[in-house]
């Protein structure tokens, strides 16, 4: 780790001031990803600003029925919170499918949104990586890419030497449920407060694969707000991985359905492990609305969701795996 100074402000204004006066400062929450990246010589902040004692804690119900998850609440506290367990069991289940108990006890809700990819080449400083070193190329294309993206990558980034190519995936489980639940990220910064819909929070690599999300410089996440609709009856998180616990997803599926008898009246399907952001396709979800909960209808939605998916060799199996996972998750959610 490189040397750095440390600050622990007690107000959001002071925290934002720290970033304003030092562009190479970074916020630290649980540190579970950032400290690791610093040890690996990927991140080199000159100052760490500890957000854990800012007044951004607590989980509270808002008057309009939304639930507000404070940015500094840990993942474990969130997953085991009674309101989350009863109103958003999909989120609770999804958080508990990720990492280990120790890491969930440290990791914060805000910090979870800023996890970096676990692409091997992003971590290997001797290899090209447009995300770590913009313009250097993408070693995953043509390399060992078993864990990499199959959606949201364009024909333009099929070339390993392209200065913008990137087939990294976004690693968070929690974010997949937040995408399905259509959470809203509340942020504040020099230009005041703003709300970011979850679908707009993370981004595809596009021409700037080094940018994981749409947060502006000097902004801070205050809370993650969940809309009232919690899909408490029909939901599931299916996570497929190389071992049954404590591993990142190869493919994961968060499903939330509303049902009238055997007819689906609302459907949300979010995928993890397949793209640079939690992946949703409203068109595929609409194929299920008004339809009976049958394996044939699930298959139509799955085929639509994966249409246009691109395999890069070692990860091509994910296209079929994702389709089967979607069908199975929908089946589990409707039972």
């Amino acid at each position: 780790m490189n040397p750095f100074t440390y600050a622990r402000p007690d107000s959001v204004d002071k925290a934002l001031g720290e970033l304003r006066t030092n562009p190479t400062a970074k916020f630290i929450g649980g540190g579970t990803n950032l400290i690791d990246l610093m040890k690996e010589n990927i991140e080199h902040p000159t100052r760490l600003v500890d957000v854990n004692r800012l007044p951004l804690g607590g989980i509270s119900e808002l008057p309009d029925g939304r639930l507000r998850l404070g940015a500094t609440v840990t993942n474990a506290e969130t997953a085991y919170n009674e309101l989350v367990k009863t109103r958003y069991p999909l989120l609770s289940q999804t958080i508990l499918a990720g990492a280990s108990p120790q890491l969930r006890n440290m990791a914060t809700n805000g910090g979870n949104l800023f996890q970096r990819t676990r692409c091997y080449y992003f971590y290997d400083t001797s290899m090209p990586c447009n995300k770590r070193q913009p313009g250097s190329g993408c070693a995953a294309i043509g390399g060992y890419n078993r864990i990499h993206a199959i959606l949201g990558t364009t024909s333009g980034n099929a070339d390993a030497t392209s200065p913008t190519a990137c087939i990294a995936t976004y690693p968070s489980d929690m974010a997949v449920a937040l995408a399905a639940l259509e959470a809203v990220v509340q942020v504040t910064g020099p230009n005041g407060e703003r709300s970011i819909n979850f679908a707009d929070f993370h981004r595809l690599p596009g021409n700037e694969p080094q940018r994981d999300n749409t947060l502006e410089a000097n902004e801070i996440v205050k809370s993650i707000d969940l809309p009232a609709k919690g899909f408490t009856e029909n939901h599931t998180y299916l996570k497929l991985r190389d071992r049954s616990s404590y591993a990142f997803a190869l493919v994961s599926v968060a499903v939330g359905l509303e049902m009238a008898g055997n007819t689906i009246t609302d459907a949300r399907i979010a995928l993890g492990g397949v793209a640079h952001k939690p992946w949703r396709k409203p068109e595929a979800e609409q194929l299920l609305v008004g339809k009976a909960a049958t394996p044939e209808n699930f298959q139509l939605a799955a085929d639509n969701l994966l249409a246009g998916a691109i395999g890069y060799g070692h990860n091509t199996f994910k296209i079929d795996l994702a389709k089967r996972a979607i069908v199975r998750a929908l089946g589990e959610a409707t039972n």
Binding site: N2, P3, T24, H44, T46, Y121, T125, S126, M127, P128, C129, Q133, S136, G137, C138, A139, A140, I141, G142, G143, Y144, A160, T161, G313, H314, T316, F317, D320
Partner: peptide
């Protein structure tokens, strides 16, 4: 399902860039 054999990346190794910036006290 076809699985490609493991091949080395088709790109040159990047020069090791020192991204740590100037030395600081």
């Amino acid at each position: 399902m076809s699985v490609k054999t493991l091949t080395p990346p088709a790109v040159q190794l990047a020069a090791k860039a020192d991204t740590r910036g100037p030395a600081r006290p």
